[in-house]
């Protein structure tokens, strides 16, 4: 019996998992341990599985994922801070047969872009919004976000978020779920294999809704760690997220087929 080499193993019939061709080969700019990379991959895998790579326009935000267009191998636009839902609105209205989505962080979507988020949802724009909530401004070095938890320390809340003077963390996802314009609203995570599978299912449902021309906007929040911003090791940050973020930002579907659950 001859010796088995690696060349004998790497054959098309033996491949069980591949990087989607909709991700470029460029190294991700995200910190090791962060949920952005996984979420990017899920969005791109879903678009590939739905066969939409030639009919999709993505809109990147300002924040950690400002360079999303360097990693997502489809037509992309890079929007001004918070304005992605307005940018996406026009693209979808002018190209109604195309698939349009935004990919935004919490500062972009729930602070500076609150008006654009709420009004795109309220008009029931037939787009998908993928929203990464890590409770902090990662890109600019760990400042307080609208979603920062009470008491949580950041560089602009160094003694912890004082809700009396800094406000409470904004549950923007519950807020937009109240609007008749949203068709599907879900909150997911990507920190464990089972969470990744659930998140992918939710993202796929959101894009399928758009493909099926369902009446309204599909919105998927992904609660993610920010190990750098939270100043923790990746595993510890995921434990902290489970113990602190999830009780406040409860995982699961919030609205299905236009009905609040």
């Amino acid at each position: 019996m001859s010796e088995i080499t690696i060349k004998d193993i790497i054959k098309p019939e033996n491949i069980v998992y591949e990087k989607t061709s909709l991700m470029t080969d460029k190294s991700l700019s995200y910190c090791p341990g962060c949920g952005h990379g996984t979420t990017h991959r899920l969005v791109m895998e879903v678009l590939e599985e739905l066969g939409q790579e030639n009919d999709t326009i993505g809109v990147a935000p300002v924040g950690c994922s400002v360079l999303a267009y360097e990693f997502m191998n489809i037509d992309m636009q890079e929007a001004a801070h918070g304005r992605a839902p307005a940018v996406a609105t026009a693209i979808k209205r002018l190209w109604p047969d195309k698939i349009v989505f935004t990919y935004q962080g919490d500062g972009d979507l729930a602070a500076i872009g609150t008006a654009e988020t709420i009004h795109a949802c309220n008009r029931g724009e037939k787009i998908v919004i993928v929203f990464i909530n890590n409770g902090i401004y990662g890109m600019t070095g760990g400042q307080m976000a609208p979603t920062t938890l009470p008491g949580m320390k950041t560089s602009t809340s160094p003694y912890g978020r004082d809700v009396n003077s800094m406000g409470n963390p904004l549950k923007i996802t519950e807020l937009i779920a109240q609007l008749p314009g949203t068709y599907y609203v879900s909150r997911q995570a990507v920190h464990t294999p089972s969470a990744v599978r659930k998140a992918k299912k939710a993202i796929k449902k959101a894009f399928q809704n758009q493909l099926d021309d369902k009446p309204g906007l599909s919105f998927v929040e992904v609660v993610s760690n920010c190990n750098s911003g939270w100043k923790m090791e990746p595993v510890a940050s995921n434990v902290w997220m489970e113990e602190n973020m999830f009780p406040y930002y409860e995982l699961g579907d919030i609205k299905l087929e236009g009905n609040l659950l």
Partner: peptide, 17 residues
């Protein structure tokens, strides 16, 4: 649109397409 800010960014999206 909901504001002039949104209007001009709608132009960014539409013009860019």
């Amino acid at each position: 649109a909901e504001s002039e800010v949104a209007s001009i960014n709608m132009l960014y999206g539409g013009g860019g397409s």
